[in-house]
Write a protein that binds this DNA or RNA. Structure first.
Length: 576
DNA sequence: ATGGAAGGCGCG
DNA sequence: AAAGCGCGCCTTCCAT
């Protein structure tokens, strides 16, 4: 059963209609005011458990969450279209040529709108200003038409089951992302401020450096004999360093570390603290933390490979330095789970390299550290060497230690290395490559093909360099993208199981609504659940079970598991 | 004046 | 030890 959700043609109200799986109407079209929508949606959810179909979850779900309405399933036409347009699995269908683009996200809902009087979850399509509504949101007919087109593209594709799984997981991701934004990460502003005060000094007046930062800048000016130096200016800095006899090619910290000069230590300290101040300082707190929660927006499918991105506050780049401020509420704890060596394991599964898979198991068939296993098989037990070699193979390293170690890996695991080599060669030829479930690389532009034909020597060098660069991209794409699919399936399974935890029913979200375990963060191969202490055992088991379920969904029965490390901590900084 | 590139560094 | 993938965010610097 589907429930189609759209706007009326004059965009002042919503329309809802139930449809059977074959697309025939199962209810009359119901017109609903904005105020009444959450109650209507809740009633339909409880009565029919439909799959909600909308142009994009970000247009509808935040308002529903604000009214405490949570949904089990959806089909996000925008995210699905984004996949189907490029998927090699659907290349021979009419869909890619005929699809109507989904209306874009209303600009006023997006970035630069810090949490304030007008949070994005309070706004909606209903009161989007005229300027933003130039591209009309879809009405019911458009939604129905696009759903039909997508279903037919899937069924006439080369791998309907895989695409169905991918689109279902991606849509579930859209629900998770909105819920995590709504929920936020518990954030102790007082602890964060104490940290800032200890490291930087008191909060400075507008446009001033904190006193400890200014003191470091002064020390640096003295050591470099450059009284007016602005240490934030790479140009001024490199000139001052050269004058002081420090012959660095750039001002990157790792390069400066090599020099022995009294200016280096204060400079490196300045860099570290300056970043804390500008990126995660008082401004960050003011902009992104409200009522003890850090609310950042997740962008599902925001990366070409299918990984998520984030918008506002950098939820996926929270530095270790400030993780001490993320503390679970009283009566709750964080359960932090990360998939161990996810990308290498994905490579072993994709390439069906049984030797590499065996390196991830012990004699009893239990999962063990894959890098350690590979190290034991061919790197004299040196785990870090094995890790550098494996990552080099996935990223396409050619020089340095990593580049030197790859050939040894190729002798040990020819199938796995062939798999990424083939992806790289295809990319160099300008071809498209795909993940296991069928997300494909965007096509190369016409200019790329033109540049490959160029004749003059310098142009040809550039063309070859561009081809190698694309080869590294496609080599990594198949692994990173399939890892993202695994993670998305893991998330979806996790969410489904958390919602089913008793007491409560799926339609009300059970505990998911009434203070139960909540997903509060997701970082590519890691999730954070904010969990009532009495449910730690159950939720930990669910994290493991969901991993196995995701593996089965993606790859079927394979002699390789995707183990997750689970740590139960009060404070995010203590994980692992 | 302002938008975008580049340098730098945080995360996976 | 510092090459090879994917991002977001902040500041400076340069072109339009």
């Amino acid at each position: 059963m589907y429930a189609l959700l759209a706007l009326t043609s004059h965009e002042s109200a919503a329309v809802v209609q139930l449809r059977n799986d074959d697309g025939t109407p199962a209810s009359p079209v119901q017109t609903v005011s904005r105020a009444a929508l959450p109650a209507v949606v809740r009633a339909l959810e409880e009565a029919h458990h439909p799959r909600w179909v909308w142009d994009r979850a970000t247009h509808w779900y935040p308002d529903l969450l604000a009214a405490n309405v949570r949904l089990e399933r959806c089909h996000d036409l925008s995210l699905c279209q984004n996949i189907l347009l490029y998927s090699a699995f659907a290349a021979d269908t009419d869909y890619a040529r005929q699809a109507t683009p989904v209306p874009p996200e209303a600009e006023n809902l997006r970035q630069g709108t810090p949490l304030g009087t007008n949070t994005s979850s309070q706004d909606s399509l209903f009161d989007a200003p005229v300027a933003a509504a130039k591209d009309k949101a879809w009405d019911l007919a458009a939604v129905a038409k696009e759903l039909g087109a997508q279903k037919s593209a899937i069924s006439s594709s080369t791998h309907p089951a895989r695409l169905t799984l991918l689109l279902s997981a991606e849509s579930a991701g859209a629900l998770v992302a909105a819920e995590m934004h709504h929920e936020g990460i518990p954030w102790r502003e007082d602890l964060h401020r104490r940290l800032l005060n200890d490291l930087l000094g008191p909060e400075p007046a507008l446009h001033n450096r904190p006193e400890k930062l200014e003191a470091l800048a002064d020390l640096l000016r003295t050591e470099l004999n450059a009284p007016t130096l602005n240490p934030d200016s790479p140009q001024e800095l490199i000139r001052a360093l050269h004058r002081a006899g420090i012959d660095a090619k750039s001002t990157r910290s790792w390069e400066l570390q090599e020099f022995n000069h009294p200016a280096i230590a204060p400079l490196l300290t300045y860099r570290k603290l300056s970043r804390l101040f500008t990126t995660n300082g008082w401004n960050w707190l003011h902009q992104w933390v409200r009522e003890g929660r850090f609310h950042s927006e997740y962008v599902v499918g925001g990366v070409v490979s299918g990984r998520w991105a984030s918008r506002g506050g950098g939820a996926m780049q929270i530095p270790a330095q400030i993780r001490g401020a993320a503390v679970a509420d009283p009566g709750y704890t964080f359960i932090v789970a990360d998939a161990a060596q996810l990308e290498p394991r994905v490579l072993a599964a994709l390439s069906q390299d049984s030797a590499m898979a065996a390196a991830g198991r012990d004699a009893a068939g239990q999962s063990k550290d894959l890098y350690a296993g590979i190290a034991a098989q061919g790197f004299g037990g040196d785990r870090s060497m094995a890790k550098i070699a494996l990552l080099g193979a996935i990223y396409g390293a050619t020089t340095g230690e990593s580049g030197r170690l790859v050939p040894q890996l190729a002798r040990m695991y020819p199938r796995a290395l062939d798999y990424v080599e083939n992806a790289a060669r295809a990319g160099e030829r300008g071809e498209r490559v795909s993940t296991h479930l069928g997300r494909s690389t965007p096509p190369t532009g016409t200019d790329w093909h033109a540049s490959q034909q160029s004749s003059s020597a310098p142009e040809q060098r550039r063309a070859e360099s561009a081809a190698r660069s694309r080869g590294r991209f496609t080599r990594n794409f198949v692994v990173q993208g399939t890892a993202a699919e695994w993670a998305c399936c893991w998330l979806a399974e996790l969410r489904r199981r958390l919602r089913a935890l008793p007491p409560g029913t799926p339609s009300t979200g059970g505990l998911a609504v009434a203070g139960g375990p909540q997903l509060v963060a997701f970082l590519h191969d890691e999730v954070v659940v904010h969990c009532p202490v009495e449910l730690v055992e159950e939720v930990s088991a669910i994290l493991h079970d969901s991993s196995q379920a995701a593996t089965d969904l993606l790859f079927g029965p394979i002699p390789l598991a995707f183990p997750v490390n689970v740590s139960v901590v009060q404070c995010y900084a203590d994980a692992k």
